[in-house]
Amino acid sequence: MNATAENVIEISGLCKRFDVGRGGSRRTVHALDDVSLTVADGSCLAVVGESGSGKTTLARVLVGLESADSGDVVLAGRPVARRPRRAERRARARDIQMVFQDPNGSLNRRRTVEAAIGEVLAVHHRVTGAEARRRIEELLGQVGLRPAHARALPGELSGGQQQRVAIARALAAEPRVIVLDEAVAALDVSVQAQVLNLLAEIRRDRRLTYLFITHDLSVVRQVSEEVVVMRQGRIVERGSTDQVLDHPRHPYTVLLRDSAPRPGWRPRLSGDADVREVEA
């Protein structure tokens, strides 16, 4: 084990195929097609793409919710087995945690905030009782919630508060890496700004590494140092965030950038010749 490795995540040649459809329309989709990337310790890599790009499959393979067909994943210097045993999976969960777009995906609506966070403390760090309550209060404070929120059920919280609980729960494992899958996409603009600032502050304070999956290039600019652009299972462009957003090289990155609403923007049909024909 090499805890001081410069790259916390090293992925090489990752492939994942799904068979979809039935009978005559049966075909194979390459969700991941030879994907390689590295993420430096303490940095934030944004993964940009639309539906079908493979960005979520990449995240799921990385945290162990899905296994790849081929390729290697090295997490914090430790190679990750393609079909890990239970103990290995648990060790990986301590290193890497995930926050989803819909906080209800990771919160049980019948369990209090305290129970949701307490479970992670007990499983990963064997912390229970008074010590657990103290840690829960501390974690809630770090994500901007009050101690009283510990006894709330998810349904009693707003969307922004639920997402803060999901972040606190991920932090409870004391991971080195957090994978954020469209974690701010469902939040209102004013709440999104609060959560983006919170995530930046936590990363700074705890020296965490983020893999930030998003379709939103404004969010990419705000949170990441590096970015990869994915399309149909492949990485089509990569580089520093400023370089890729200011001087995109791949036509698809240009299209993504031109499609994002901003002041002075007008919706446009893409360069598709057939679409143009119809317009004429």
């Binding site: 922004g160 508060q161 709440v191 600032n197 994002a260």
Partner: peptide
């Protein structure tokens, strides 16, 4: 709202919900 053209050191927030 974060901008696509420039990164803010910290996003201005509307306090509360």
């Amino acid at each position: 709202r974060p901008s696509i053209t420039a990164r803010a050191v910290e996003l201005p927030v509307i306090p509360g919900r």
